[in-house]
Design a protein around this nucleic acid. Structure first.
Length: 184
DNA sequence: CGCGTTTGACCGGCGC
DNA sequence: GCGCCGGTCAAACGCG
């Protein structure tokens, strides 16, 4: 998947934008994941896909996601940020699948759950989380495939504008978790 | 008490 | 216009 089209992921190369965007920091790891997408998957990671308005080829997960636009919150800001003359700002979001039995993968940020809805064609619900940091409107949703309940799909949208609130070596715990749960 | 989850209501978009 | 669907709100509740 050509990430070049998603400047939000790659711009500002210096201060680890990927780390702010993708909680699983370190460009090495991420590129590693991407490189392995079209072949053998690294343990834990089963896939990573960026999506905006791309027609989804896989009807399995990530059912039709309407353009949600402007994660402001209250309705006054909720209206589409599409004003005349402006092209619609597509909010980049990207999902990756992990093999895990636990839904809550601690990625170093603090999330507050704000919703949970049932997913069609899926017996498992989808949980909606929002970053609790003030001014940070990063959202994520966690979903589990009914096909294979061992797979958890986490979809992030937005970019963190603040450092991680937890110790960074917690990242290793995550990797350990993944490898542990990917053992089956 | 402060912060996070739960859960039904609500809301806007879209298809019929 | 109506009803479905996906996403969000917010009050109540739970927990340290």
């Amino acid at each position: 998947m050509d990430m070049e089209n998603y400047p939000i992921l790659l711009s500002s190369s210096s201060s680890s934008s990927l780390a702010t965007a993708i909680p699983f920091s370190s460009n090495m790891v991420t590129s590693h994941v991407i490189n392995h997408l079209h072949g053998n998957n690294p343990p834990g990671f089963l896939g990573l896909k960026s999506e905006m308005d791309t027609p989804l080829s896989s009807d399995d997960f990530t059912t039709t996601l309407p353009q949600i636009q402007s994660f402001g919150g209250p309705k006054n800001e909720m209206k589409l940020g599409i004003k005349k003359g402006e092209k619609k700002i597509r909010k980049p979001r990207y999902a990756f699948q992990t093999r895990s039995h636990v839904d809550i993968l601690d990625d170093g940020y603090r999330w507050r759950k704000y919703g949970q809805k049932a997913v069609k064609n899926n017996k498992f619900p989808r949980s909606y989380y929002r970053c609790t940091h003030q001014g940070c409107n990063v959202k994520k949703q966690v979903q589990r495939l009914s096909k294979d309940e061992g797979i958890v799909v986490t979809t992030y949208e937005g970019m963190h504008t603040h450092p991680i609130e937890k110790s960074t070596d917690n990242f290793e715990h995550i990797l350990n978790q993944m490898q542990i749960y990917s053992a089956f």
